[in-house]
């Protein structure tokens, strides 16, 4: 399980968990569940296009996820934002299907991108994973107070010189690159659970902000490590273990809170 060829997978998975657990705390705090669901889907055609062009997957993913941020920000002003956003997302998924079909190897690639395939990680994935896995939590921590303030009391925060729209774009940008790096592990359909599950569980367990953030990151690490180990042991897809693990952790936290008080 810890063979040299798997070393990169362990490192990348750990970094993904740090970024996703940290971003997830703010997803739940700021009520950005839809964005966390949408950005990985928007990133999906990026991976397919990268395969078609022969560049590293993560750059295609990040480019499309960041374009997704621009799209979400723009669509917020539309008349029926939910219907419009859902349609654009679905069209992007369709575009991804086209790119995959053009690049050949359709079936396997579809499966890996939608549901995750961490064991395919190689040394080339390390630099972007390091940058995002350490950079995203550092930046989010540096913006901890303004991000919290504008989520709790947007009016007051605005009066104190914090631009709600600016913070939103900054946060969604960090969420997008996190989604891009996490997508190969959990898949476009399951990155959402890795962000939301640990954070939603953490806030059941503690009412304090910083401990909740730390707990969210720790639970994300637990889920990712367990998923990687179980995927290797059983040779079942890692996405299955990520989805099931997130749901289990959340259910356990709900149960613990109910039993305790």
């Amino acid at each position: 399980m810890f063979a040299p060829y798997l070393r990169d997978a362990w490192i990348v998975a750990t970094l993904i968990a740090l970024a996703a657990g940290c971003a997830g705390y703010f997803v739940v705090l700021r009520g950005a569940g839809f964005a966390a669901h949408a950005l990985p889907m928007a990133a999906f055609p990026g991976a397919a296009l990268a395969g078609l062009l022969g560049i590293a997957q993560v750059y295609g993913l990040a480019a499309f996820a960041l374009a997704g941020v621009a799209g979400l920000t723009w669509l917020k002003r539309a008349q029926r934002p939910d219907a419009a956003a859902a349609l654009v997302l679905v069209a992007l998924l369709g575009l991804g299907a086209l790119f995959l079909s053009l690049s050949g190897g359709y079936a396997n690639a579809v499966y890996a991108l939608l549901f995750g395939q961490i064991l395919g990680v190689g040394p080339a994935d390390l630099p972007p994973a390091l940058a995002i896995g350490l950079g995203v939590p550092a930046l989010l921590l540096a913006c901890f107070r303004p991000l919290s303030y504008s989520a709790i009391a947007p009016d007051i925060a605005a009066a104190r010189g914090l631009s709600g729209a600016g913070l939103d774009v900054l946060f969604l940008g960090l969420l997008a690159v996190t989604a891009a790096i996490a997508l190969p592990l959990a898949g476009a359909l399951l990155v959402f659970t890795l962000m939301v599950g640990p954070a939603a569980a953490a806030r059941q367990l503690t009412p304090a902000p910083l401990p909740a953030l730390g707990l969210s990151m720790a639970l994300a690490l637990l889920i990712v490590w367990a998923a990687l180990a179980l995927a290797w042991l059983t040779s079942l897809p890692s996405g299955f273990f990520v989805g099931a693990g997130s749901a289990l952790v959340y259910a356990a936290a709900r149960l613990w809170r109910r039993v305790k008080g």
Binding site: A142, R145, P146, Y149, A153, G161, P207, P209, A212
Partner: peptide, 20 residues
């Protein structure tokens, strides 16, 4: 997960960037 005291503290420094 924000306690009453945490919110009062944000009144002091909620607009400041930097590690908390």
């Amino acid at each position: 997960p924000v306690r009453a005291g945490d919110f009062v503290e944000l009144g002091l420094n909620g607009h400041r960037f930097g590690f908390p």
